[in-house]
């Protein structure tokens, strides 16, 4: 597989390690009243779509960027890749996730 790194261009997937669902970006507030329930969901509940999926990849043998990669899990087609920090900062500003 080849991953289009937003800074470095097409890179072989062997340079990356995989973490999983990009919803991991949406870590709940640990001090909130409903934290136990929210953390239970954050930690354990995942969608497992046959189709388009947003997921986290780490450019471990490269520039050590975390990327949010949009991939079709059926065809392995990669529809895009963004720096995770940009995605998270946009989320914090209230932009689209």
């Amino acid at each position: 597989m080849l991953i289009p790194h937003p800074l470095l261009g097409l890179r072989d997937s062997e340079e990356f390690s995989y973490l999983g669902d990009a919803t991991l970006l949406e870590r709940p507030d640990g001090m909130a009243a409903d934290a136990p329930q929210r953390f239970y969901e954050y930690q354990h509940l995942r969608d497992n779509p046959a189709g388009v999926h947003r997921e986290l990849w780490f450019h471990e043998q490269g520039d050590r960027s975390w990327l949010v990669v949009t991939r079709n899990t059926v065809t392995h087609e990669i529809l895009g890749a963004e720096l995770a920090r940009d995605v998270k900062l946009a989320m914090a500003k209230g932009g689209a996730a």
């Binding site: 780490f58 471990e60 720096l83 995770a84 920090r85 998270k88 900062l89 914090a92």
Partner: peptide, 14 residues
């Protein structure tokens, strides 16, 4: 180290 980078970039980039 990878986990700390995850925390830095994915959780608290601010």
């Amino acid at each position: 180290y990878k986990h700390m980078e995850f925390c830095r970039q994915c959780l608290w980039p601010e």
